[in-house]
Design a protein around this nucleic acid. Structure first.
Lengths: 240, 240
DNA sequence: TAGTATATCTTGTATATACAAGTTAGTCAA
DNA sequence: TTGACTAACTTGTATATACAAGATATACTA
């Protein structure tokens, strides 16, 4: 355990308790005052933890009443936010494999160069991976990474988790992403690498991924067979 | 202008300045100390405003350096979060119409009853609306609303904006939603009401909408022609 | 020249206090 | 019984202070 960041520790403890059922859905959390005494801290620190819970859809705070635990059980497939395929597959628990179909340095096309904000004469990593779940090749992930950020890359790393390598080994922090979902017609590569089963559409998730210092770092195109695609999100209405 | 909520006021002012180009992308905002003096307030209040900006993808805060303005220009189609079709269409500026195909009280099917958490013998509003953009019928919205929350509903309200009616007229606050996106085969109703142009898939966005007090209130199924569907999102990686 | 230390900027975390505002339960009076 | 008021809870906002920690430019030293 890390000792730092008391409010994040409290956030995680409360998440664990909610997920373990210690605080049930539609019941109320202890009041901020009570949580102050439980965790021996100040009210502002408790409030920071509770705001994190609210942002991530665990509770709803109501002025004058308290914090109500929301029902998150049936909300079980969080592609929402930034999650790598490996983290996802672990939650799914299904049998899954990754096939690395391509791993090389290339001079990128204009759109990729623009996304990664690199110059015309610099190379980037291009990785193509097919995700197989329960014996079916369902997802084609095409990743482009800046070579000045990730210098070395191997088939083993790609077969495991690029994110894990970047965060654990390189010590970099992936911070945020812009995501776009559209439906397109499958191209020759989709048909060749995936088991499309006659489907005439493919769901394309484009991810523009940035590091902590707001530098562009990765562009990912994730191409899903439509019948196996599911995107789930929690959203708060922004105040006007 | 509302006088209350200083930090939200500051947030909106900064959003406006960023969108107007007063603070350009990849440049830095004034420091928290400078903003304190500009807005004559405390640092914590400034920080609340800046955290809102960061959450909504306007800036990236970097410890020791400052707040960098992110590039949001090409990120121009925010279905992200909770936005009604009318708000959306206003941003698009395209010519659009809404056709109300159905408006009645019904005893809902099990899945809708479950989503709205109503008993078996209570009626709910069922509204079917077709969205026409540039002469093409592209989206079929099927709404189910609790009759105890929204007692009256008319064709005029549905043709305009149900959200606007609920928030402005009824004074209710829509707070958060759970959203699911999947791809399905079109049914008979889709084929009858939409201009499918031979497309063999349809993108289904299911929205479970809740009020401020965490009570279920609306279930919406938004069915999009695949070639016209686009979903854009900004996501921060959650801390582990 | 090159490297190191330092001072000074930045944001991040933790604490305390005060009051505003929404909710709820109970009291009291008509 | 009904209604209005009140007291006591809840969360929301604003302020102040202190120190931690990351970034950066300057000055100093070897």
């Amino acid at each position: 355990m890390k000792l730092k960041n008391k409010y994040i520790e409290i956030y995680h403890e409360l998440v664990n308790k909610i997920e373990a059922g210690a605080y049930r859905a539609n019941s109320k959390l202890p009041s901020e005052h009570e949580l102050m005494e439980i965790y021996e801290t100040s009210r502002e620190t408790i409030r920071k933890a509770l705001n994190l819970l609210a942002q991530n859809g665990f509770i709803q705070k109501i002025q004058g009443k308290g914090s109500i635990v929301l029902d998150t059980r049936k909300f079980d497939f969080p592609i929402s936010g930034l999650v790598s395929f490996k983290e996802l597959a672990k939650q799914l628990g299904d049998s899954h494999r990754t096939h690395v179909e391509k791993l090389e340095k290339v001079f990128p096309a204009d759109d990729v160069r623009d996304a990664l904000k690199v110059t015309a004469n610099s190379e980037v990593w291009e990785v193509h991976r097919v995700r197989e779940i329960d014996g079916e090749r369902i997802i084609l992930d095409k990743d482009f990474l800046r070579t000045d950020v990730v210098e070395e890359l191997s088939i083993e790393i790609c077969a495991n988790s690029i994110y894990e390598y970047i965060e654990s080994e390189l010590g970099l922090t992936i911070s945020f992403a812009k995501k776009e979902i559209v439906v397109e017609e499958p191209n020759e590569e989709d048909r060749r690498l995936l088991h499309l089963e006659g489907h005439s559409n493919i769901v394309v998730v484009r991810n523009y991924v940035y590091l902590e210092d707001a530098s562009a770092f990765q562009y990912t195109e994730s191409r899903h067979r439509p019948d196996k695609f599911r995107f789930v999100d929690f959203a708060r209405r922004t105040r006007r």
